[in-house]
Structure formats: structure tokens, C-alpha cells
Design a protein around this nucleic acid. Structure first.
Lengths: 243, 243
DNA sequence: ATGCCGATGTCAACTGTGTTGCGCTCTCTC
DNA sequence: GAGAGAGCGCAACACAGTTGACATCGGCAT
């Protein structure tokens, strides 16, 4: 009687309903914590606070923190997919995927930074893969060309988005160091040994991440186009896009 | 006198003062540990073992582990630069940088994975920046175009290399899960909902990381070329590489 | 020579992390 | 109503980075 624990039968009365916690609630609490941003915020103990339960209760629903993280990441992938409008051509679909990925990764920096080199192997990841494969197919790629360019797009977006997220997570001191490097250390280099850095000092200090992001996305699209053109030129098995 | 603690003057009595340790020795011990590969090997305590001293002695030479890591990373950047032959054109210089970066990152996976979104702000990093800026300048880029493409190249190489290194660090169980995903889970998707995944199942399972790496590097070079062509076409300030 | 002092290494300990084993309670099922 | 079993709380473990107190050594000015 110490705790009333009012439970509504909710969706599945036949399921089982004796618990306060479930995977969904834990994932959403994780997202709330991840959205707060700070680097070390996403710990099991803070997750317990957020849930109002003992931290170790999480382990009744997830084997370990890694499995929880993969589930959370897949949830965020769903948020990415929901943000992409329907009915776009393949280029704008990829641009939309890139933009949404960045938005979501900056919304949940911890997740974005930890997932740059992982595979969730869950539902929404399949949808993303299918989306990219559909885009490169529509662009005219097939077989190994399609797969190579899919991986190129997927890995690139994941990587850049992860870099941005990880940067957001750096603590204040480290981030200030990184930011000031272009306006401080890089200004003091020897002009003879480093002529390019010296000459381009202003641009190095003022270039924005979004410009670089844009350039990277467009480079991916160009690469796909180029490969497709090469395929149309000589439609045999392997299309080499060398020069 | 409770403990004798016999210390022999060890290797260099003539060298410097009574210190057994210095930054160089610590960095090299760190590289030896990092080269052994396993994920959690690079700890301060293991570093103490490797050095034959108390773990906390490291803190007499580096403010914290992060500063040590940045120094180690800059050392590995030197190894990258040393591996690039001289006298190459800008394309092959970038290809060499990419190949050497991958080689070194796979040699010291811990360093490679932790440095994907950091800036060392040390000597060798300047040399790398100068190298890339020189390449894009030789390609015909100037001003903001040069800087944007430099960052594109630098970030991309760092990111891909970091992904590969991080993957190497995954423990056996997690890695097996990732590896098998293309031959297991991705084979069982619904053919109607995921036609592209189904159709390209074989290629998804057999594509090699090196193919993707090659494609990414060539995409970067192509992007630089394209931007340079656009500049030559209309040599005013801003060159928009849209379509 | 001597006494001081800073630099360096050692040791114990602190905080915080993920994780596990034990036991209690509460709900569901028969 | 009784058994069973899942879910949660609690205490504790191993390991991480880091800090402060102490010991020792070398170089320096007196």
C-alpha cells in the first residue's frame, strides 16, 4: 500500500500490466535527457531520476546501456523519417534526409554523437536504407554501384552529423579552445612555412559549418550523378568513374 | 621507513634531472598501448603499467587525459604526413593523405576513434591544414571556396577514418552483430515494403569498406574539380556549384 | 657544505560510471 | 486463496579519471 501505482489497462489488456516501466517510457525519458544536451547527462542514474525509479530498474527492460542506446537511436531515426516530405525527387529526398538528420542529431546530441559508427538493426534503420537505395536507384544506379553510393551517402551523413553533435557536447573549456583556434593559434603561424594558412586566415576564421555541410551533401549528389552518367555511357557491368 | 621502496636510477643517469618520465616517453607508451587495439586498453592505469611507474605520475606531465590524447593524436598526424610521398600532384596528394590517414587510424584505433571531432591545435595539424589548402589552391580554388573545400576534405577523411577505427574497437559480440546484420536481419525484411533492400541483398552483404572509402575520396576530388571549373567559367567572387 | 625548494613519483582515497545479486512486493494465473 | 514470477529497490562491485598528502631527489643560492 505504500504506493498506489494506478495503472490503466491501456492498449493491451491481455498483455501484461503490472509494471510502472516499459521500454517506451524508458526510451522517451532517455530522449528527454538527451535533449537537454550536456555531455555526461545521459547516465543510468540520471535516467532513474527522470523516471522516478531506481536506476537499476532499467536493466529489467534492456540488457545493457548499449541496447537501450540502439533503441533510442532507432527512435530518433523515426523522427528523421517523419520530417522528410513526400513526393520529392531523388535529389531533394537526399537533401531532406541530410537536413533532418542534422536537425535531429543536434536536438539529441548524445545520441547523434554515439551512433556515428553503429548499426541499430531495427525497424527505422531499414526504412532509411530503403530510402537511400530508392534514391540512388532513381538516379540510375544499380547493383554494386547503387550499394556503394548508398553506403557513401549513409556513412557520410552519419559521420558529419555525429561530428556536429559531438562538438556540441564538448564542455565549455574544450569548445572555446577549438573555436578560438582559428582566430588565435592559426593566426600566429609562420607565414613562410604556412603561406596558405596565412593567406586564408580570414576565411578560415569565418567559414560556417552549414556551408561545409551544404558542400558535402552536394558533393554526394554530384558523385551519384557522375556515376549514373558513366553507366549510361557504357551500360556494361562495372562503371568506373575515374578520370 | 615502513617501506624500503628501492628505486634504481634506471636507464639514464646522465640524461637530465632525476625524472624517469617525460612527455615523449608517455606519448610513445600511449602509442604502444593504442596499437594493441582493444577498446578499453588505453587507461591511465594501464599506461602506468606500460611505463613501470605509478599511474598518477602521468599527471605531472599532462594536465589531464584529454591533453595527453591530443598530444598523442598530433604525433600520429606526424606519422600520416611522413607517409605521403613528395612531388605529387594535388589529386594524388589528397589520395595519399586519405590512404595514410586510414592506415594510421587503423594502426592506433583508439586514437583514430576519439579524434574524429577534435582539433589538436598542435604542430602537425597545421602541416595537414597547409597540405590540404595547398592542394585545393593548386586545383584552382581561392578564398572561401578553398576553405570550404578544405574543411570538406579534412572533416570527411577524419570522419570516415574514425568510423573505421571505432568499428575495430567494438567488442567481439557487438561487432558480430553489426557484421551479421547484412547477412541476417536484412535478408528477412518484407519484400513488398523494402523492394530495394531485397533486390540488392547480395551486394549489401558483400560490399567492402575499401570500395566505399575509394568512392568517398574520389567524390571529394570531383567536387573540388567541379568548383574549380565553375570558377574558371565565371571568375567573379562567388562561384555557385548548384545545378 | 648546507639548507632550501621545486619537480617528480608513490600511495590512498574520492567521485562517478555501468552492472549484478539478493530480497521484497505486487500482480496475474490457476 | 495459493503459487509463481516478473518488476523494482537496495547494497555492493569493478573500474574509470582525478586529487591531495607525503617522500624523495636534484639543483640552486648562500
Amino acid at each position: 500500500m505504500t504506493k498506489p501505482v494506478q495503472r490503466q489497462p491501456r492498449s493491451r489488456p491481455t498483455k501484461r500490466s503490472g509494471s510502472q516501466l516499459n521500454r517506451e517510457a524508458i526510451i522517451e525519458a532517455s530522449l528527454r535527457i538527451a535533449a537537454r544536451g550536456s555531455a555526461d547527462a545521459f547516465t543510468v542514474r540520471r535516467l532513474g531520476e527522470e523516471l522516478g525509479t531506481d536506476p537499476t530498474a532499467v536493466y529489467r527492460h534492456f540488457r545493457d546501456k548499449d541496447e537501450l542506446l540502439l533503441s533510442v537511436a532507432d527512435r530518433t531515426l523515426g523522427e528523421v523519417l517523419d520530417g522528410i516530405p513526400a513526393g520529392l525527387g531523388w535529389k531533394d529526398r537526399l537533401r531532406g534526409l541530410a537536413a533532418e538528420s542534422l536537425r535531429v542529431a543536434l536536438k539529441y546530441p548524445v545520441v547523434g554523437s554515439l551512433m556515428t559508427s553503429r548499426t541499430t538493426r531495427r525497424a527505422n534503420e531499414f526504412r532509411v536504407v530503403e530510402l537511400i537505395l530508392g534514391a540512388v536507384t532513381e538516379a540510375g544506379l544499380e547493383g554494386m554501384d547503387a550499394v556503394v553510393h548508398y553506403r557513401m551517402v549513409g556513412d557520410s551523413i552519419l559521420a558529419f552529423v555525429g561530428q556536429r553533435a559531438a562538438y556540441l557536447l564538448l564542455d565549455q573549456t574544450a569548445r572555446e579552445g577549438d573555436e578560438s583556434s582559428w582566430t588565435q593559434e592559426y593566426r600566429l603561424v609562420d607565414p613562410d612555412g604556412f603561406p596558405h594558412i596565412t593567406r586564408l586566415g580570414d576565411e578560415l576564421a569565418t567559414v560556417a559549418d552549414d556551408q561545409i555541410y551544404h558542400a558535402r551533401v552536394e558533393a554526394l549528389i554530384t558523385a551519384i550523378e557522375r556515376c549514373a552518367e558513366g553507366r549510361r555511357a557504357r551500360p556494361d557491368g562495372h562503371a568506373a568513374a575515374r578520370d
